[in-house]
């Protein structure tokens, strides 16, 4: 378990290339602190999804160091990956719902995987689906849901187990502005309960809705950090943005 003040994620000169192509990510260094709210922006193809994949352990970097929850994630043995992944909730850009499972079973999946008893699954999952406005569609397969509805199921699944870190890749890309705002409030309330939130988005309006958020910008695979807020992020107690840098 991480110390209250210790960093939750640390990237140091991380590079990523797929196969023998050129690097998709280069010299990426940053630190994420527990309880902060981060936005990751950048043009399409800048490498946002790739960076998030490194973050939720779906991909190993080709170089550099990554520490997660105070542990070296590069040398992490395979059998310890599930334990780490259970502490991270992920909203995939392409949702990645399980086709043959109902909306309810999809949302329940992280709890079932974690061995939560069926008794303690029914109520929270039902409530979460109610919250994202799908209370009456619990037993429907993802294929019969609209894109926005699928996205909401994906979000419900990502937050149901109250992860230490929530990683969301374009989580509001398919919903109307009202629903986007509502989902953002969900992330914020989770954030207030202590979850570190990382949201990748193009949507500047969304970013403005969370004034205390920190912004990371990817530009052609490089992290631009003009204010130094990422290299020298604020302490956990004052997550008020780039104006309060604190040296490591």
């Amino acid at each position: 378990m991480s110390q209250p003040d210790a960093e939750i994620v640390q990237f140091d000169n991380v590079g990523l290339r797929y196969g023998t192509d050129k690097e998709i990510l280069a010299d990426v260094s940053f630190t994420l602190y527990p309880g902060c709210f981060y936005f990751l922006t950048g043009a399409s193809g800048a490498g946002k999804t790739s960076l998030l994949k490194l973050l939720y352990l779906a991909q190993r970097p080709s170089r550099g160091l990554i520490r997660l929850f105070g542990t070296d994630a590069i040398t992490l043995p395979r059998e310890r990956l599930p334990g780490f992944r259970r502490r991270i909730g992920v909203v995939f850009q392409d949702f990645r719902l399980v086709d043959h499972l109902s909306a309810f079973d999809n949302v329940a999946l992280p709890l079932r995987v974690a061995g939560v008893s069926e008794r303690d699954i029914v109520r929270p999952v039902g409530e979460m689906l109610d919250w994202v406005g799908l209370g009456d569609r619990q037993h429907v397969r993802p294929a019969t849901l609209s894109g926005g509805e699928q996205q909401r199921v994906a979000i419900a699944r990502a937050v149901i187990a109250r992860p230490d870190m929530l990683v969301a890749d374009e989580p509001t890309g398919n919903v109307d502005p009202d629903m986007a705002l509502k989902l953002l409030r969900l992330f914020e309330s989770l954030n207030r309960l202590g979850t570190t939130v990382v949201v990748a988005t193009h949507d500047v309006h969304l970013i403005r809705k969370v004034p205390e958020s920190l912004i990371m910008r990817l530009d052609k695979g490089r992290l631009s950090d003009p204010t130094g807020a990422l290299r020298y992020p604020p302490r956990r107690q004052t997550p008020t943005g780039a104006s309060a840098p604190a040296p490591l």
Partner: peptide
């Protein structure tokens, strides 16, 4: 595809 998702959600090989 499903196995990958279950892995990402913290499912173990044994499960």
């Amino acid at each position: 595809e499903t196995i990958e998702i279950v892995h990402m959600l913290g499912g173990t090989d044994k499960q």
